[in-house]
Amino acid sequence: MAVFGIWLGALLTLCIYSFLYRDNPLYKFAEHVYVGISAGYFVAAEVHNVLLPNLIAPLRSDFGHRFYLLVPGLLGVMVFFAFSRRLNWLLRYPLSFVVGMGAGLTVTAMLSADVMAQVQATALPLNSVNNVLLAGGVLATLVYFFFSAEHKGAVGGVAAAGVWYLMIAFGAAFGYTVMARISLLIGRMQFLLGDWLHLLR
């Protein structure tokens, strides 16, 4: 079974790499298999990791004390109304609950973690060149994103400095992305040449 698994993985990998020549039926087949398998994976994972432990098992084991779980269960089932032309407006009820929860959590979590904590980390004593560059860089980047004032004169100059900081951040992010993709490629090559063809020791 292990050998069959390696052959299957290797052949599907080659199907994907056939795209390097040009778009072809083998690549399309592997691509569709990937989408189908991934969708099926998430369905089973959601059933076993979310619905069974949080809804079905508690209701089955202790319905008397956990009957209130029928509320999220009912709201969840209302999602199926999305496929009804006449009753699809009922989808708004579960959606509004999820959106409201998400919005409420976003307000508090983002303000504390992504605004207050980041501002706190930036408010450094300006006693070294690096601290000045860091605090000035954050300020300049924020000025670039501030569209209520026209980017002219002093504001324009600071916004231009903000663009330089952004370019460096994007360059670093792009560099890491390239390295991540290449390390994945190395992993695939090790699998093909080592596990499959046994050419690597």
Binding site: N130, L133, L134, G136, G137, A140, T141, Y165, M167, I168
Partner: peptide
């Protein structure tokens, strides 16, 4: 320094 400043902004 510059990357952290940009990302933080």
């Amino acid at each position: 320094v510059p990357n952290t400043a940009g990302q933080r902004g």
